[in-house]
Structures are given as C-alpha cells and as structure tokens.
C-alpha cells in the first residue's frame, strides 16, 4: 500500500513539476498519504491542472478544510482532498496562509462543490476566498462575532457568568 502511494506521489509531483516547476513547493508523505504543498498564488492554476491533466484526472473535490497552528506562523493550513474516480487515487493539496493576511483564491470555478466547503471555512476560521460567488456565513448566524474554530477562541465561547455581570473572557478582536 505504501509503495503504490509513494509511486502516486512521484507521478503527481512529476506531472505538476513538468507543467510548472514552481507549483510543487514540497511533497510530504505520512502513513501512506500524499500531500503536495502548493504556493498560494498558484493554487487555482494547480487545482485546474489536477482536474484537467489526462494523467491526473482529479475530478472529485471530496473535502476542503482548514487547520490552525496558532501561535506558530504561517498559522493556517488549507487542505484540499482530491479524488480521481477513474484512477482510484487520492491526493491532498495544502496551502499555508499567514494569520495577518488569510486570503486565498476560491476554487468554485474549478469545482462548483467547493462553494459550501469554502463558506464553512470562512464561517469558522475567517479565511477569505477571493472570487467566491457567495461568501457568507453558513452555519453560524450572520451577526456572530469571531471565528470559533480558531485555536485562540475559547472552547466554552464568550459568555456572561451568571450573577456577576462580568464577561467570562474578554472578546479579542479577530
């Protein structure tokens, strides 16, 4: 299993490198999973290439999610999990974003299914996706303050302590 997956890693990385040498910043292997770290500027082009290239054919965007490494920088890591139904292969594209400028290109133009996945990430992590057609909160109310899945947001939330009139924790501006 590990052998085939590392073969797949080589295939994906080589095909992407031959298309654009800058597209692959790093190739990671862990427990048989392949991760390709992509520079932020090249994300949409690389995703498009992954979907269209005849040797890759990653036609299904199965999942997109964010990971917050606060207090380390670059703080955010976006993980896109791609599946090629015809080739029966998986790969993960990863983009690293700094906490001061969490903006990345939207992939809705490449896979329309990215729409709600990106809205969820925007809602819970506050990452902005440029070019997204409808970037609104999806799970939380529109007037919610802060981004709950960030690591510096308390698990118990910001709330009043009964009978004291004081806030449990002071809200930090996101």
């Amino acid at each position: 299993m590990t052998e085939t997956s590392s073969q797949n890693a080589n295939v994906v990385a080589e095909l992407l490198r031959s298309w654009n040498p800058k597209a692959v910043a790093e190739v990671l292997e862990f427990r048989g999973e392949t991760t390709i770290v992509v520079p932020r500027e090249l994300l949409r082009a690389t995703a498009e290439q992954c979907r269209q290239d005849a040797g890759l054919q990653y036609n299904l965007l199965t999942d997109a999610t964010c990971l917050d490494r606060y207090p380390h920088e670059p703080r955010f890591e976006l993980n896109y999990h791609l599946v090629s139904i015809p080739r029966r292969e998986k790969v993960r594209l990863k983009v690293k974003l700094s906490g001061s400028d969490p903006v990345v290109d939207s992939l809705v133009l490449v896979w329309p299914g990215a729409n709600w996945l990106e809205r969820e990430i925007f809602d819970l992590f506050g990452i902005r996706f440029s070019g997204h057609p409808d970037l609104r909160r999806i799970l939380l109310p529109d007037d919610w303050e802060g981004y709950p899945l960030r690591r510096d947001y308390p698990v118990e939330g910001y709330r009043d302590v009964p009978n004291t009139g004081e806030l449990f924790r002071k809200s930090s501006t996101p």
Partner: peptide, 22 residues
C-alpha cells in the same frame, strides 16, 4: 505529529474524517 484523512461509505455517501495531531 501528522495528519490523516480516512473516508468510508456511509449510507449517505462518502463520510470522511480528518485528524491532525501535534
């Protein structure tokens, strides 16, 4: 430390779990 993504077939479709460990 590392990341793992697993998918199974739930009655509704592909159910996945992504866990990152530090």
């Amino acid at each position: 430390p590392g990341e793992a993504f697993v998918t199974i077939e739930s009655p509704r479709g592909e159910l996945g779990c992504f866990i990152a460990s530090d």
